[in-house]
Design a protein around this nucleic acid. Sequence first.
DNA 1: AGGTTGACCTGGACGC
DNA 2: TGCGTCCAGGTCAACC
Length: 273
Amino acid sequence: MPELPEVETVATGLHRRVAGDVIESIWLGDKPQTFKSKPAEIAATVEGTLISAVRRVGKHIVVDLEAPGAKSEVRQWIVHLGMTGRFLVVDPAVELAKHTHAIARLKSGRELRFVDPRRFGKLAVVREGAGFAGPGSEPLTITREDFIQLFRRRKSPIKAALLNQKLLHGVGNIYADEALFRAGIRPKRHAGKLTRDELTRLHKELVKVLRAAIKAGGTTVSDYVDSAGESGLFQFRLRAYGRTGEPCLRCKTPIKRIVVGGRSTHYCPKCQG
DNA sequence: AGGTTGACCTGGACGC
DNA sequence: TGCGTCCAGGTCAACC
């Protein structure tokens, strides 16, 4: 899936295209695993509302909704894409993709469809603005000092800590590897043993790589597409992720693949000390 | 309590 | 062509 840059791309694309539209009705499929809130509650929350905004929080897409005559009431449709989820705006004439789990019919005549083969994605609704995101900071806005403090006394490998959504929101396997490569830090290093200089570098490189990936419309490895069905472009600029055995772009040493925290991890054994 | 592992799913790539 | 195995961008619950 979709990590922060991909979710950001989908959310901003949806915002541009459907903000101001009205959800007239919604159809929900029969795979219970997809629905974190009860289907009846999802329908009751979204039907008849105006989409006031679509934005990203961590790896979640938040659709802000306004019920007629109740502008101040909090209503949100929360979509998590899991690994293979797609959230698309399409013409109703477009053939239904296999594994379509939700279809919202919009007043403009278009449809908002949620498609997810592996079913790790989730749909939910929130009614009182009670945080669904939990603890953790946004990597694009956290200060350098707070970033450094996050990893104090952590014994897990820095790679695993970067993926821990209770610490940072939105970093996944691709960008964790990329940030560590660019900062020259070995993924297995204990987070708590990194120096201030190393963490400063990591913070800077993480922000840089996330921003560059957003600009490129995200990374498409296999499934990811934006809200219009378009692939991203950042896969052509990856330096470590998925480059097992290929020469390091800095020193030509073959990139190594290991497993850290159960996730496949790519790094340069020479540049990342 | 913090850290690690396996389970949840489908489908594509690869080897025989 | 067909079957088996492995792998995949995420998250939890269950264990140590």
